[in-house]
């Protein structure tokens, strides 16, 4: 049996509809496609239907219309769940368990033999950096530590598809960066990920594609470049730019606004105008110090698409991926130990 390994979509939802008792329409004809190995950001305002979608995919709730398949099987099918890893937004568990105990429980539900359960639990605890606290009961853990345990349980079955609901919730910046690093590594291993997150900057950094959902429907879907509007504004910093040079810039732009000493903002028709601006500055004998096309951020695109008023704040700056929890430099290059085995995920 193939579980998403033959190029078929790992998630395919068509006209998915869910109306709860009382008439609350959580999903209203949602279409969603995730291919093997893709990292897809699933974004939407609160109440848009993100959680309902994920709960439908794991079989916790049933659709009232449309259809959904997971790993080539109907959503909720037991065989599909075998190849699935899931991290709920609020990962809860009995507080008296230790991480190895919790992973052992989930390993038993997955039907893993005892030795395999122990081996994988030890590896995952190392990967999420909880070795030092592994003997402590979960009730003594911080929220960030619990989130790491949740990630470990989601990865336990070596899933072909990961459904992550706010995986960085409760994590500090280092933890957030480590999750991002882990996601990129999972992607390199061919694991498909549906990432439900409010941290748009994170989604922007790691996702291949983005699906934006509002009022139970996908309102925009595609690669980041297809979602955000093309650049129409260019920031220029140049020294010794004379009037002739400025005239050349005015000729290339619909509007040229001075923003300070040696700094201008030019409104252009298309991104193709950017190299022509560079040529005009250099051609005028000026020293071009910076030429920055002002892209629409994912956050701005998101706010535009869901009809919210943008506040002008841009997404957070790009952080450099850092070390993975508990993985040394060499292991980082090769990925976590269980990923280096010849056995493919799931």
């Amino acid at each position: 049996m193939s579980l998403g390994g033959d190029g078929a979509p790992v998630i395919e939802a068509r006209a998915l509809t869910k109306v709860y008792r009382g008439g609350v329409r959580a999903l209203d004809g949602l279409d969603l496609l995730v291919r093997p190995g893709e990292l897809v950001g699933f974004l939407g305002p609160n109440g848009a239907g993100k959680t309902t979608t994920v709960q439908l995919l794991i079989g916790a709730v049933r659709p009232t219309g449309g259809s959904a398949t997971v790993l080539g099987r109907p959503a909720g099918d037991r065989l599909a769940r075998r190849g699935l890893g899931y991290l709920p937004e609020q990962f809860q568990f009995p507080g008296f368990l230790t991480p190895p105990g919790l992973l052992d429980f989930h390993g038993r539900l997955l039907g893993l033999p005892r030795d395999e359960r122990r081996r994988r639990a030890a590896e995952l605890i190392r990967i999420v950096g909880l070795e030092a606290a592994a003997d402590r009961p979960l009730k003594s853990y911080s929220k960030g530590m619990l989130q790491r345990v949740g990630l470990a349980q989601a990865l336990l079955g070596r899933p072909a598809l990961l459904l992550l609901d706010e995986p960085t919730s409760g994590l500090d910046p280092i933890g957030t960066r480590n999750v991002r690093d882990l996601l990129l590594w999972l992607k390199s291993q061919g694991v498909a990920v549906l990432l439900n997150s409010h941290l748009l900057s994170e989604v922007e950094l790691v996702c291949d594609r983005v699906a934006i959902i509002d009022r139970g429907r996908v309102v925009a879907e595609g690669r980041l470049g297809e979602i955000v509007r093309p650049s129409t504004s260019v920031r220029i910093r140049a020294a010794d730019l004379d009037e002739a040079g400025l005239a050349a810039l005015r000729a290339l732009s619909s509007e040229l606004v001075a923003e300070g000493e040696g700094q201008w903002r030019a409104e252009v028709d298309s991104p193709e105008a950017v190299p022509r601006i560079a040529a005009a500055v250099v051609g005028a004998g000026a020293r071009l110090e910076a030429l920055v096309p002002a892209h629409e951020t994912l956050e701005q695109a998101f706010l535009r698409l869901v009809g919210a008023a943008p506040d002008g704040a841009a997404a957070a700056g790009q952080a450099t991926p850092g070390p993975r929890w508990g993985i040394d430099a060499e292991a980082r290059r090769a990925g976590p130990a269980w990923g280096r085995s010849s056995e493919p995920p799931a």
Partner: peptide
Amino acid sequence: ERGTILAVVARPIA
């Protein structure tokens, strides 16, 4: 009520 059931039903369990 607590949502603990979700991580369980996501497993291949009936």
